[in-house]
Amino acid sequence: MTDQAQTPSPQSRSLAMNGFDWKRLSRHGGLIALALLLLINILITPNFLQLQTLFVNISQVATIAIVAVGMTLVIATAGIDLSVGAVMAVAGALAPLIFLSDFAQANPSLGLALSIAVPILVALVCGLFNGVLVAYLGVQPIIATLIFFISGRGIAQVLTNGNLQTFSHPGFSYIGTGKILGLPFQGWLVLVIAVVFWWVVNRTMFGRRILAVGGNEKAARLTGTPVRRVKIGVYVISAGLSGIAGLIVVAINSASDAARIGNLMELDAIAAAVVGGTLLMGGKAPIFGAILGAIIIQLVKYTLLANGVADEVALIAKAGIIVLAVYVQQGRKE
């Protein structure tokens, strides 16, 4: 009996047959890819080892990483959130409307606080909407979040009359351009968010329940897991993090364009989560994997752009990465 528990798992047996170590590749594949990307860039990209390059990449990757953390939680429950980009647009459109208002001009610090708090709050409500659709009305996640994916950006454009809002507001811009200990503010924010949600997933009851719902929903229900509340929870978190990401984008640009904020972000975030080792069928939530995934996606984009490859080609490269990541995942399963 004892030896039975220690017999090699199916994976290690299959690798013996394939002669290829899928398990190790998929566990360290992300780090290997990152190392390769860095090496290639050091060799071919001009000025890659400049501090400025680091800052640009950190500020670019921050939004993807933050959204990818929320996406990872949603996917861990076997769901998906297509509305993240649209929620970013709504939050990003709201913030300038608030701090540029007469009220905020009269009460600068209260105005600044509101211009951060209100958009995030609105984002949370969007997440609640998604969550209720999925958990109570039984709408498939991809459809439920497609509703906001389509309508959210429309709402953002209606809010701003489709205008590009430009502004100069040092207080608000700190979110996008501020530095702590010489590194961009949003880099630190990513770190804090990642640590907090790593803790949630690995150390709290809520985190354990997320994995249980994604791993076997019936078993979760039978053991008293409030399945609906858990599902609503992850969509609310995902939307809240998207709201924060929307604010960062606006702050970096000192401008808010509802048509462009968070455009195609859902694909970047899903790609980052998948590259990071999140299983699309649920039950796994590797938070730092998602951060690593976001960094890889960002670096690929940067590498191509910095070497003069067209944006369109960069998109194709991104698709290639996703396919590769899913392929490696499949290999691990068999």
């Binding site: 994995l211 791993g215 078993a219 053991t223 008293g224 039950g283 796994k284």
Partner: peptide, 18 residues
């Protein structure tokens, strides 16, 4: 309806006890 296959023995055993 019983096991959560990807979870460890520890996590499976304490699911109702959380």
């Amino acid at each position: 309806e019983g096991i959560v296959p990807e979870m460890s023995v520890r996590e499976n055993m304490t699911l109702a006890l959380l």
